[in-house]
Amino acid sequence: MQTIINQTGISASTAGFDQEALASARNFRLIMDAMARPGNIVRLGLQKQPVGKMSAGSQMVALTLCDHETPVLLDTSLGEEPVEEFFRFHCGSSLVDDPSKAMFAFLSGVPDADMLSAFSVGTPAYPDRSTTLVIEVDGFDSQPDKGLALSGPGIRNVHYLQVSGIDAHFWKWWPGNASRFPLGVDAILVSDDAIVALPRTVKLMEIA
């Protein structure tokens, strides 16, 4: 009998974690750190083949955070058979079309304003029951005095961030989202295996 598998994991050929418990614990720590330090570029480090249009980073976020209790929305560009199968098989997540029902939205780009405002922002009793957006972008950099100036909890003074391959209306929409605190959505931007977290507490200023 031929098997390609190690003792603790899922076969590499189908894009699950090779060492499920260790990898998800390690990734959880990294994603948590990213959320605690908004704007920091965090490399998740495990190299994986893209599944459909989903980057290695998005896959790792999904394998770490999504399960049968987190309905997932995929935008039309990501919602292809291999990606859908990935979520159903590896995460056990149900796929939904209604943005307000999604705990996570995996997006190939920034959705239009109507959709952005349709995601769940949580309730006053349970502000955590909001959608987390996971958006694919082209790349990040953190040169001083350029791009975006981030401030807020988890940032000493100011943190500079440049994001390429993201539709600029996202930055126009963000202040409205942040102003609803404690309600609001959180976002994780992903490029290859690197992530940048933008929790709803982040204040953004675009630098000309």
């Binding site: 031929q2 098997t3 050929s13 699950g16």
Partner: peptide, 8 residues
């Protein structure tokens, strides 16, 4: 046939 484990 031979089998590959997709999920152990």
């Amino acid at each position: 046939p031979s089998y590959e484990l997709l999920r152990k």
